Amino acid sequence: MEEKKENDFKMDTEDLRLLNAFGEALGDLPSEEETRAAWNAFTSRQDAQKRRRIIQMWASGIAAAIVVLVVLIVPRITNEDTIQDIEIFAALDVPEAVITSESNGRITLSTPPATTTQITLDDGTQVTLSANSRLEYPKQFPAEGTREVHLTGEARFEVAKDSARPFIVSSGKMQTQVLGTVFDVNAYPGKVAAVTLFQGRVRVSDEKQTRQKDIMPGQQAILSEDDGFIISEAQLTATEGWTKGEFSFDDAELAEIMKSIGTWYNTSIIFHSPDLLKQRIHFRFPRTTSLEEVVQALNDLGIAKLEQKKGKVIISNYSPKH
């Protein structure tokens, strides 16, 4: 038997099986030419199907690669485009100058940003009111009962002694009661209220007076989320810095410092990097300077990047190129 050449076509047993598979024409077996044409059509169809399978596999591979690429890329985009803002102080609606108003025998005193003012109450109590703060008090205290004032913001009280008339400072959910002493109350909106005692003795309680604590000089009481009190040793230098016209912090958290800056200049403070909140630094700077100068001084420390944008101060990590 002669050896088959690559392009030769022989009618052997396999060919006959193919012939029968393609069917008969007019009841007769097809001719060799018809069989050759049928075979060529058959192989063409096989080649076409094979090409389609390859194309489908290739397309499926591309689709799978795209899916994998999207899975890899989407988290990156999400992380870059959805930075979580942590606002630790929001600017308040405050006046542009010191305002005093009177109604029904009560006086309201309000201060603008970067300003303190001092007043003496009817009983001789001296009050230093900090920036962006409001104090409501009676023009004349009653002869009997309590001497009560309402504070929003921050103030230093040097209370005139009067054992028959306890002095009460109401500030949000917290009340501070004294007979004669020197203390600070910090109760800005959106912040936990705190009382720091310098002289004498005070008693703090919730607004319903169901919980109360006595604190001693050098201690600070902070109202907790459950309306209880956390008593701790106070950072007196930092606490009384505003009464001396300076920011004064030793090994303090950046979040604490920025809250103080926000309340003084009445500017919103936003962190873009949670890890910076607890970054501890030493910072001392006069409060008589502008916010721009304070921001520049903090940037000079190289700890974080501070930017002023649309009435806000944004704090973020330096880029890797820094």
Score class of each variant (00 low, 15 high):
E158Y: 00
R284A: 14
V70W: 14
N7Y: 12
A38Y: 07
I107K: 13
V98C: 07
S260R: 13
E207I: 14
E233I: 12
A91M: 10
I55V: 15
E144P: 00
Q175R: 14
T196Q: 03
E154M: 13
K321P: 00
W39S: 05
S171W: 08
V169W: 08
K139P: 01
S248D: 13
M216R: 09
V313K: 05
R17T: 10
Q219P: 02
Q296N: 10
D15H: 09
L223R: 14
P320T: 01
E292T: 07
L109E: 10
D275E: 14
K139A: 15
A90E: 12
A65Q: 01
F183A: 05
V70M: 14
D12E: 06
G27A: 05
E307L: 06
V313H: 02
A255C: 01
R280C: 03
S171I: 11
T115Q: 15
S103I: 07
I62K: 11
G27E: 05
T111Q: 05
T243W: 02
D227T: 09
A155F: 10
K191T: 08
Q199M: 01
R287W: 05
E2N: 14
T243S: 05
R52Y: 12
K321G: 00
R203F: 00
S260A: 15
E144W: 00
E80W: 12
T120Q: 10
V204N: 02
P30C: 04
I257Y: 02
E102A: 12
K191L: 15
Q212E: 14
A164I: 07
V127T: 08
R106A: 05
D28Q: 13
E256F: 05
S163I: 11
I168D: 11
A41S: 13
Q46D: 01
P112T: 04
E292M: 01
Q279N: 04
A131K: 12
E207L: 12
L29Q: 06
V185P: 04
Q56D: 02
P75R: 09
A304I: 07
Q308M: 12
G302N: 10
A160K: 10
T43D: 00
T181M: 03
H150T: 15
A114T: 12
E80R: 14
A194L: 05
I119C: 00
L254F: 09
S60R: 11
T116S: 15
W264L: 03
V68G: 10
A38S: 12
E136Q: 09
D162G: 09
